[in-house]
């Protein structure tokens, strides 16, 4: 475990906690895409099925359980407790446009044609595009609350740190996982535009709003 990996995981956890605290404190999920959060819950569920079959480390198990809990609590807050504040009108990304290609690709391009391996591949591909409904929602409404941009920043930072982690692992352990790396690069690219806006606007104290 290298420093990029640990910081990446911490950043991922921080992103999820920021989102939960934002919703909880404001008692509102305005501006948050429920569809993206459902996709993340689906990502963790299909990837962490190995919790039941494969023990890797205490750290690994605890983090997986925490990630699953955060994802499901977030979905519950959006579609349950605070559903009246949920902006379903603007959360209009068509999920089938993501799910159909992702399911197709996970059957075509995987390491082994077994149910668990296909589900793992599905989760990797799905994670790389799961944020799109959220980014779509921001581009549709033309703005995002500052706290929502912090959430997106840490989620993007996690991806960037994982890329550094893979470069490190390739050089030190000769380890690489091409499915994860290619999807990770794609996923990180989706955040580039947002990073630019975050640095040029939010960090200078302005609200993120699109022209």
């Amino acid at each position: 475990m290298n420093v990029f990996r640990i910081l990446g995981d911490v950043s991922h956890l921080l992103a999820m906690v920021i989102l939960l605290v934002k919703i909880w404190r404001s008692k509102s999920c305005a501006g948050i895409s429920g569809k993206s959060q459902i996709l993340f819950a689906l990502v963790f569920t299909s990837r962490y099925l190995d919790l039941l079959t494969n023990f890797i480390s205490i750290y690994n198990t605890v983090m997986k359980v925490v990630f699953l809990l955060c994802a499901y609590v977030t979905v519950y807050l959006i579609y349950g407790k605070f559903r009246k504040t949920f902006d379903s009108e603007n959360d209009s990304f068509r999920l089938e446009f993501l799910l159909v290609p992702v399911i197709g690709l996970s059957f075509l391009e995987n390491y082994s044609f077994t149910p668990t391996e296909i589900l793992w591949t599905f989760s990797i591909y799905l994670e790389s595009v799961a944020i799109l409904p959220q980014l779509f929602m921001i581009s549709k409404t033309g703005e995002a609350e500052t706290i929502t941009t912090h959430y997106l920043f840490f989620l993007g930072l996690y991806r960037a740190l994982y890329l550094a982690n893979w470069i490190w692992r390739y050089h030190t352990e000769n380890f690489y996982d091409q499915i994860a790396v290619v999807s990770g690069v794609v996923q990180t690219i989706f955040y580039c535009d947002f990073f630019y806006l975050y640095i040029t606007k939010v960090l200078k104290g302005k609200k993120l709003s699109l022209p």
């Binding site: 991922h12 990630f67 082994s112």
Partner: peptide
């Protein structure tokens, strides 16, 4: 060659 990856990452 292809092999099932070691899934120690989150």
């Amino acid at each position: 060659k292809r092999k099932v990856s070691v899934k120690d990452e989150l």
